[in-house]
């Protein structure tokens, strides 16, 4: 098992190198000449050349990429063109906000969606099922940022219960987390329902009933435990998506997270910031995916056995 984890961590390295390669080249080949963007309006050719020299822009791109990767090993992702601040530090400042929003949203989504998914599966083809599925259908059909706007109109403009944006204390977290969470909840409900429907028809469910187990035990002990893998997969996917920043919710609620950092930096043509932030997001995503794969092993002995063999 430990060997499996180590192997997975080693395998992450080429993935990160490949991703950073694509992103670095894409950002630096097409982004235009940053020296021109940075130079003051009436700068002379001389001054622009000095800026180029200072940023190391005169080196061939593969040399610059090499230097960039060496810096990355030391936690140095360069300096923002716009704020002149360290990219890594800026990212790390924003990250806790994104993590806070992501985890709260996923938690809300899970608490709503998993019970709802189980409930609809048990009552398949009744009006209860239809009701739950209509809720989920609306959830996946709704643009997330629009839901955010609606929540602002209802809860902060009309009822004046909650702030409409910014980040001050727990109250400002509720609306953005609900916004992000509802979109996730819809997906998780659908996945839970179909996973449970698969499981409900299995023979071992009849075995459990024939033992004299109550319906509750049968559904939760035997059913849910077997349906967990697809449910964990979809929850994990939502989490890793949310960790790269829920760009839209962060924009609607002026939430100072990673997603907005990337979008803002793109609009300001802040190449080092965009490159660094996206690469960091990818690293983060790799880690989350690994953790999810390890959680599988915890719930399913067959997967655990598979890991040990591969280990």
């Amino acid at each position: 098992m430990i060997r499996y984890i180590i192997k997975r961590i080693i395998l992450m390295v080429p993935a990160i190198i490949a991703t950073s390669f694509i992103i670095y080249f894409a950002m630096n080949m097409t982004g235009g000449d940053p020296a021109l963007t940075l130079a003051p309006e009436n700068a002379t050719e001389q001054q622009i050349e000095e800026i180029r020299e200072e940023l190391g822009l005169n080196d061939p791109i593969y040399v610059r990429y090499g230097k960039y990767m060496l810096g990355m090993l030391k936690g140095d992702l360069g300096t923002s063109y716009v704020t002149k601040r360290d990219v890594f530090k800026t990212f790390m400042e924003r990250l806790p906000n994104t993590i806070e929003l992501a985890f709260t949203a996923v938690l809300i989504a899970t608490l709503i969606a998993v019970p709802l998914g189980i409930y609809t599966a048990i009552h398949q083809n009744t009006w209860k099922d239809t009701g739950g599925m209509v809720f989920a259908l609306f959830g996946v059909s709704m643009p997330n940022f629009w839901l955010g706007l609606m929540l602002i109109i209802i809860f902060s403009l009309n009822l004046k219960w909650l702030p409409s944006g910014g980040k001050e204390g727990i109250r400002s977290l509720i609306l953005p987390a609900l916004t992000v969470g509802m979109g996730f909840a819809a997906l998780i409900t659908r996945t839970t329902r179909s996973a449970m429907l698969d499981v409900i028809r299995q023979d071992y469910m009849t075995t459990a009933r024939a033992k004299g187990a109550s319906e509750k035990t049968v559904i939760f002990q035997h059913g849910l435990k077997n349906a967990l893998i697809p449910i964990i997969t979809v929850i994990g996917m939502q989490l890793s998506n949310a960790l790269t920043g829920s760009v839209l919710a962060e924009t609607v609620f002026s939430w100072p997270g990673v997603g907005r950092l990337i979008v803002d930096s793109i609009s300001k043509r802040d190449t080092p910031m965009v490159t660094g932030a996206i690469i960091m997001s990818c690293v983060l995503m790799c880690v989350v995916n690994l953790v999810i794969d390890l959680i599988y092993a915890f719930f399913d002995p067959r997967i655990k056995a598979q890991y040990s063999r591969k280990g």
């Binding site: 023979d203 071992y204 009849t206 075995t207 033992k211 004299g212 719930f299 399913d300």
Partner: peptide, 22 residues
């Protein structure tokens, strides 16, 4: 529930699917 398993028990046809894999 009291009767099932206690008074009457059942052996199923396919042992590959009758046991809970987890």
């Amino acid at each position: 529930q009291k009767m099932r398993g206690n008074d009457v028990a059942m052996i199923f046809q396919d042992p590959m699917t009758a046991l809970n894999p987890v």
